[in-house]
């Protein structure tokens, strides 16, 4: 039975609460970009992707590449809540000898499909997985979540050409378009707009959507899966720090430390 959008919203809230707890315990990490990506990751892991948490390396599974690797807390919380490992493990995030490294490490964490860290590299990896799937006649799809600031990296556009040139309709990229990067507004630092048009001219099927509206997100992923002969991009309008009012749209919350006081305030907002 598929979860209803209402149930998914409940899951996303639990994931957000986990993210804050992890960041409080760790004393470092990236709240803003983790919270903006939470609804997308929830939709993927609870509804969109064909995965079997009890068989993490099942060969036919859909793959997920977290190109915006600093959103690792959102992915770890989703994996734990989905049953890949114990939720209690989340408290070890960023600590010595933890399975949960600051950025995802496939050798340490069950459920991670690709190690990532350096920005701009995920889409190339997704393309490689998708090309191998086509060669082997496998039907799995590859999802790749990219930060909007990250698309300033040149390799993203090399990869965008490769996906389109090879007609990789088994690739679905998602851009977490929260308009904020570490140093501020993306449009003031190195403007990305019109971002959807850029990808369209690169021969991608672009679906613009509200990245926090579950119904819209699910519809966007359904549309992406139906497109043949070209890759799809879900351009998700999001809010950095979504769900915690004092973090929303505030660039300092890219990687600001969560203190006890602020943690309580944030958890109240997410209660």
């Amino acid at each position: 039975m598929s979860p209803t959008p209402t149930e998914l919203r409940g899951v996303a809230k639990a994931v957000r609460r986990d993210i804050l707890t992890m960041l409080l315990e760790a004393g470092s990490g990236h709240p803003g970009g983790s919270l903006s990506a939470t609804d997308i990751i929830t939709a993927l892991y609870w509804e969109v992707m064909d995965i079997r948490p009890d068989r993490p390396v099942w060969e036919e599974r859909d793959r997920f590449v977290l190109s915006k690797a600093h959103a690792a807390p959102a992915l770890y919380a989703a994996l734990a809540r989905r049953g890949y490992f114990d939720v209690a493990e989340l408290l070890t995030f960023r600590k010595l000898k933890s399975k949960l490294q600051g950025f995802p490490d496939m050798h340490k964490t069950l459920g991670i499909d690709a190690s990532v860290g350096s920005p701009g590299q995920g889409l190339s990896i997704a393309n490689g997985l998708a090309l191998a799937a086509k060669r082997d006649g496998k039907s799995f799809r590859v999802y790749c979540l990219i930060g909007d600031g990250e698309t300033q990296e040149g390799q993203v556009w090399e990869a965008a050409m490769t996906s389109a040139h090879h007609g990789l309709d088994n690739v679905c990229a998602i851009i977490d378009r929260n308009h904020m990067m570490g140093d501020g507004d993306t449009e003031k630092i190195a403007a990305l707009a019109p971002l959807g048009d850029k990808w369209r001219t690169f021969n991608w099927h672009v679906i613009e959507t509200d990245g926090h509206d579950m119904e819209q997100l699910l519809a966007a992923f359904r549309e992406a899966a139906s497109v043949k002969g070209k890759p799809s991009l879900v351009l998700a309008r999001t809010v950095k720090g979504k769900g915690v009012p004092f973090m929303e749209n505030s660039p300092e919350w890219h990687d600001k430390k969560v203190t006890e006081d602020l943690y309580e305030e944030a958890m109240q907002a997410l209660s």
Partner: peptide, 21 residues
């Protein structure tokens, strides 16, 4: 032949290697 994009070539190779190639 992936074209003149060495960084993407290495990344794409990584993805194919993840799929067992």
């Amino acid at each position: 032949d992936i074209g003149l994009c060495e960084q993407d070539m290495i990344g794409t190779a990584a993805g194919m290697a993840l799929a067992g190639k």
